[in-house]
Each structure stands twice: as structure tokens, then as C-alpha cells.
């Protein structure tokens, strides 16, 4: 069964796999998480604002994105971003955007919809009493949000936000459909070039498994420590 396996191929391709592939994966994950949380929090505030011209578009956007598969969203932005670039810069033809930027825009805006729902739940879980206490001291909406509500909401949602990041980390593998070289893409390239599908895909699976498992265990320990402090 495992007679024809060449484990050496894995060792030889390690530099390419990690310096090119994994670096892309990690960069994309971190940037999309940061951007996604920022935009997601803004969307959450818009949805909770009670101001219809803000709440409606934000809600529509979030619901639209959450009803679409990520693969479809990747295709959408892959074709759309050059045209947006054209419209934004007023040039004559669609701007040639690199696959990296297309992927970054896609994942940031996609995850923003999911981070929005997490932050919305977090903000709503802060008791009304806290809001009233802040207001009673004369704080404006903006001040009470920045000083009182959002800091507490973030702290409460840290485990969920981190778990979403781990999911993002796994989802980046889907850039495969636009032929971008992330970690899986790199493994795939070698697999196809050298005909070593079994070795490369098994190795990729193991690497993703180890990283995700370690990360989610760390999040769980963090959750325990936060729970004790409460």
C-alpha cells in the first residue's frame, strides 16, 4: 500500500512550501483578520445604530455575504476588483490587480460579515446598565462606545474571534480556485509536477492539522484563564 512513497520529496520541497506557500497563507490570514475585525466592528455599530440608512445597507451586506459560498465570493471579487479599480482611478481599462490583492480584498470583506455578527453579539451582551451608567455620567454615544462598551465587548469575544481566525486560516486554502500559490497551492504544484499526490497532500493535511489543533488548544486554555478571572 505505501510501497511507492517517496518521503524525500517532502524534505526537498520544504523551503518552497514554507517560505513561499505558508508565508502567503499566514500573511493573508493575519491581514484579513485585522481588516475583517475593523470593518466587521464598523458594520456591527451600523447595524446597532438604529439609523435606518446605516443599519439597512450594513444588514443587507452581511446577510448577502453570509448566504454565499466563499468560492463564489472569491470568483466575484476576482472579476470585480479590476473593474472597481478602473472606476476608482478613472482609467480606460480594468486595472490589473495581482491575485494577492484580489484575495486580500476578498477575504477581508468576506470575513468582515462574520466578524460583524460576532461583534454584534458581543456588544449586545453588555448589559443595558453599563450603557446607562456611562450615559448618566454625561458621556456621549461615541465616548461610551469607545471607553466602556467596545473594550468589554472585545474582551468577551476574544475566544470566538480567535476561533474565527483559525477558520479563516483554513479557508485561505480556497484561493486554489484562482490558482494562487498559498501553502496548499504550493503543495499541489509540486504534487502535479512530480506526480507525488499522496505524499504532498498527506503532508499538507498534517501541517494544517497540527497548526489548527495547536491554535485551538491555545484558545481553549485562554478561555479557561479568562473564565477564572471573571
Amino acid at each position: 500500500m505505501f510501497a511507492n512513497i517517496d518521503w524525500n520529496i517532502i524534505v526537498r520541497s520544504l523551503p518552497y512550501l514554507f517560505f513561499d506557500g505558508m508565508r502567503f497563507t499566514v500573511t493573508l490570514t493575519l491581514l484579513a483578520t485585522a481588516g475583517g475585525i475593523v470593518i466587521g466592528t464598523l458594520l456591527a455599530l451600523m447595524r446597532l445604530s438604529g439609523i435606518v440608512p446605516l443599519a439597512l445597507p450594513a444588514g443587507a451586506y452581511v446577510n448577502l455575504i453570509r448566504s454565499m459560498p466563499l468560492v463564489l465570493v472569491i470568483f466575484w471579487f476576482f472579476f470585480l476588483v479590476p473593474y472597481i479599480g478602473q472606476w476608482a482611478t478613472g482609467s480606460e481599462r480594468p486595472i490589473q490587480v495581482g491575485a494577492f490583492w484580489s484575495a486580500l480584498v476578498t477575504f477581508t470583506l468576506f470575513e468582515a460579515a462574520y466578524f460583524c455578527e460576532i461583534m454584534r453579539a458581543g456588544i449586545q451582551s453588555i448589559s443595558r446598565g453599563q450603557v446607562q451608567a456611562a450615559q448618566a455620567l454625561g458621556m456621549t454615544y461615541k465616548t461610551s462606545m469607545i471607553e466602556i462598551i467596545l473594550p468589554q465587548a472585545f474582551r468577551n469575544m476574544v475566544p470566538v474571534l480567535l476561533t474565527q481566525t483559525i477558520i479563516l486560516f483554513q479557508d485561505t486554502s480556497l484561493v486554489y480556485v484562482i490558482s494562487v500559490t498559498d501553502f496548499l497551492g504550493a503543495a499541489s504544484k509540486i504534487a502535479q509536477r512530480d506526480g507525488r499526490l499522496v505524499e504532498m497532500y498527506l503532508f499538507a493535511a498534517v501541517v494544517y492539522f497540527v497548526i489548527s489543533l495547536a491554535a485551538s488548544h491555545w484558545v481553549r486554555r485562554l478561555q479557561h484563564r479568562i473564565a477564572i478571572i471573571r
Partner: peptide, 17 residues
Amino acid sequence: LFRNIPLLVQMFLWYFV
């Protein structure tokens, strides 16, 4: 096992490996 490997990678394992 099933939660820590991306779905796409699992598909490849079933289909190719």
C-alpha cells in the same frame, strides 16, 4: 480530526489520495 483540516484538503485526500 475533521475540524482541523481544511475542507478542500480533505476533498483532495478522498479524491486523489
